[in-house]
Amino acid sequence: MNNFSVRQFAMLLKRELLEHTTLFFYAPVILAALIFLFTAWVLHMLPGDELAIAIEYVAVAFDGLSPRDMAPLFMSLSIPFTLVFSICAVVYLLSTLYQDRKDSSVLFWHSMPVSDLRTVLSKLVALIVVAPLFYIAVLFVLYLLGIGWMTLLGFNYDIAVAGLAYLLMAALLSLLLVYCSMVISGLWLFPTVGWLLLFSAFARRAPLMWAVGVFMLLLFLEDFVFGSQFLANWIESRSNPGQYIVFDIADLLPRLFNYDMLFGIAVGSILVGGAVVMRRFTD
């Protein structure tokens, strides 16, 4: 890839982020603000002695733990972020190729020397690799506020809540694990990603209805014609979050390189290929 190619791809990524600031930036910021306000309100309402008990509880939970052991505990705070990200990802995938056609701007994008494959790839990279970084950045600010609050209260009530350096290291490690989990979940759920993109490129209206409707029809047809539930079972076998959440850095490679992961990526790639072909000629 030459310099121009790299610059072009970087701009395609920027384009995605600019178009979807609500999903990629405002959504985590608003969520973080709500969590912060809710926590501040709870702390404000809590009597002083109960606050001390809560701090003591955290101190005991963290006692003697290394940052590596503490990281999964920090990760619990990421749950609402990953849930919101999942919803935003579905909205993004269904609208990204559909909206361009709805407002006719696809004609402008097509009038530029950018291939459909490159455009679709930029959308996948924006969602799976870049967007989680924004969520992580916001989560980092929330972690810092939390650590600052725990340390200050610890001083106030004379309770030692682990070391500040330990807490920071645990927070950073947890952010790395959350980021890896988000990226790996994007790859693990690649068939779903491809399916949604396909209908985003295909549907003339209501892509969600198409994506869900055709999927239900396939399930029904398989059951009706062959009397089997292979598709339903395959999806069920892949729907355990434990298959893509990384709780320890040692989980990373086994999560990435296994038969189920690679097979899912292959199925998803075929569906993404379909979306690229649809993108070429539908307007």
Partner: peptide
């Protein structure tokens, strides 16, 4: 499209 440009009847610029 490196050699050709296109303007359509409707406002196709991304709004």
């Amino acid at each position: 499209m490196e050699e050709v440009c296109f303007i359509a009847d409707v406002g196709i610029l991304p709004r």
